[in-house]
Design a protein around this nucleic acid. Structure first.
Length: 403
DNA sequence: CTCCGGGATC
DNA sequence: GATCCCGGAG
């Protein structure tokens, strides 16, 4: 388990890692076997040097504004960098300060979040922005505990803001860091288990402290994440490009493909749904989901859990929507969530005139409106966009579509 | 098509 | 432990 950064010449190991002196800080000509602290400092220095030359140029790395860094970290929760970039730019352009965000309407915030997923993040960020203006005069707190007290800020996000925006030597562990550290240290506990989590966080803390002094905490933490994103990848890690190859326990043991250990996911049940795209001229009936649950706060064509159109009609009426025209199947859409696979039958109905919407609808919907389907100033999920697009696709395409 | 990865909250 | 989304890889 213990990594041997420098195997003595002639040691019996199969893959004795040799330092490539030309690529790294050469250090003394014949360094003694380092103690644990020395090894940690070496790892930190090598990672930081690598980060300086290999880091991607990302928009949130060009700012010191804690609000902008906070926003980027929330968007990056469960979401890939390439997806986040355009959302981040638009969001920051519209809400350049925490005050601007706090003053915004939630429907506007959700409209800028549309398509990014995990919509709770947007609602909670908005809440937290209001808290920051009300309780902290608009300045994001500096210390981890005060940060964690904000809604939507957990251990990872608090560590990211404190270290990256405020350069405090505090750790952070996200999926990338968990993978990198489990490999470097040869941690073979399930990274989601209590023991695994504890080991990862204590390792991250030990390293960021060892780094401090020569390497800024924010730079070190970002280097760990960048390595996980670009080199120490889940499959086919590019070990030959790794700045800490010589310190990696997994590599020394030939176990880089086995780590990290992650418990298997439960399989996700399929749910059959019917979506009703009810049109009147160029308007479509949209309903808004109540805050809090699935797609909370977003607008969509009404959808119910049903296998057949006939069942759907009754359920739609229960939900407060009465499509007083025949529903005709026009396509199918599949949408994957964390815990469900939605198989949606898309049905269309044409009505002569928009009817007056009830003020209040049944759960999960709370209100309805006839809107232009291209509407931009409300939140609309990817699923709803797929449904709308299936309903407006030419019939031939719909007929060809398979589940 | 299937599989997989990526945090916070209650 | 359950709830919350989407896109990219294969």
């Amino acid at each position: 388990m213990s990594a041997a950064p420098r195997s003595p010449a002639g040691a019996g190991q199969k893959r004795a890692p040799r330092r490539r002196a030309a690529e790294q800080d050469p250090g003394p000509a014949l360094p003694p076997a380092p103690d644990a602290g020395e090894r940690d400092r070496e790892i930190a220095a090598a990672l930081a040097a690598w980060f300086d030359r290999a880091a991607r140029d990302l928009p949130w790395r060009r700012t010191r504004d804690p609000y902008a860094i906070w926003l980027s970290e929330v968007m990056l929760q469960q979401t890939r960098v390439d997806t986040v970039i355009p959302y981040y730019e638009r969001f920051l352009a519209r809400y350049p300060t925490v005050f601007a965000l706090a003053a915004a309407e939630i429907d506007d915030v959700l409209s800028l979040w549309s398509g990014l997923g995990y919509y709770r993040r947007a609602r909670v960020l908005h809440l937290a922005a209001r808290e920051v203006t009300a309780r902290h005069d608009g300045a994001l707190p500096r210390d981890v505990d005060a940060l964690r007290a904000l809604p939507g800020v957990g251990a990872y996000t608090a560590g990211a803001i404190a270290s990256i925006a405020y350069e405090q030597p505090v750790p952070l562990v996200d999926g990338n860091v968990a993978r990198v550290l489990s490999r470097i240290e040869g941690i073979d506990d399930d990274i989601r288990s209590a023991a695994g989590t504890r080991k990862l966080w204590s390792t991250a803390e030990r390293l960021v402290r060892a780094a401090a002094g020569s390497v800024q905490p924010g730079r070190f933490n970002q280097a760990l994440m960048e390595l996980g994103a670009t080199v120490c990848t889940p499959r086919n890690p590019r070990c030959e490009a790794c700045p800490v190859l010589g310190s990696c326990a997994a590599r020394a043991l030939g176990r880089e493909a086995e780590l990290p250990v992650i418990s298997p996911k439960r399989d996700v049940p399929a749910v059959a749904m019917v979506a009703a795209v009810v049109r009147s001229g160029d308007r479509v009936l949209f309903v808004r989901r109540a805050d809090g649950g699935l797609f909370g706060g977003l607008w969509e064509p009404p959808m119910v859990e049903a296998k057949a159109l006939a069942d759907a009609r009754a359920l739609l009426e229960q939900a407060g929507v009465e499509p007083d025209a025949p529903l005709r199947e026009v396509g199918r859409v599949r949408h994957i969530l964390t815990h469900r696979r939605l198989d949606v039958t898309v049905a269309r109905a044409e009505v002569a005139a928009p009817w007056r919407c009830r003020a209040k609808l049944a759960a999960p919907y709370e209100k309805a409106a006839w809107l232009d389907p291209g509407v931009l100033d409300i939140g609309v999920s990817k699923l709803a966009r797929k449904v709308l697009s299936a309903a407006s696709a030419p019939p031939a395409a719909a007929a060809r579509r398979r589940r």
